[in-house]
Amino acid sequence: MANPATETTRKKRWVFVMEPDRCIDCEACMVACSVENHVPIGEHRNWIAHRETGAFPDLNLSFMPENCHHCDNPPCERVCPTGATYQRDDGIVLIDYDKCIGCKYCIQACPYDARYVNEEKQAVDKCTFCVHRLDAGQPPACVETCIGGARHFGDLNDPESEVSKLLATHDYTRLYEEAGTGPAIYYIRGK
């Protein structure tokens, strides 16, 4: 098996590059997503994690925009008993809502807690990278609406893309990378 951390096997690899320093926790991305994707009230496909570091009085609070990491090696897909969760050739992890019977095993398996039960669909749901917009040539709704410019989206395998250039010139980190999930959200390290 290829090392999921290198991710050079796919023709296209859609990724997010987040700049926590530019996030002001306005939650416009969450609203835009809920409107775009008809997310039921009370659930969210994306969120802002609050990371507090340091000890009083030297405290630091940073905002980390997050959603499904669309892992290259997704733990949720592996455990799905009906094959409802699947991965496209470009790495996007999606759910076939008709095939999902709602056993919630994938919710347990996701280390990022990115999944929820959509009562209206009677199925498990999560961020799709706005695949319907993507296939029409548009960026995800959360990226378009972000007023601080904290969310960047693009093809990692295109050296000319904004995300490739950002990663070439900045230090970055990914969450839970050591476990080999191959997450597609990169965080630019703060100054």
Binding site: R78, V79, G102, C103
Partner: peptide
């Protein structure tokens, strides 16, 4: 416990070797 109890038989249309369930 399933969100779709009546569709439990979907389990038996497939064998997913990596899924313990």
């Amino acid at each position: 416990d399933l969100t779709k109890p009546l569709q439990f038989w979907w389990l038996f249309l497939t064998v997913q070797w990596t899924s313990p369930m």
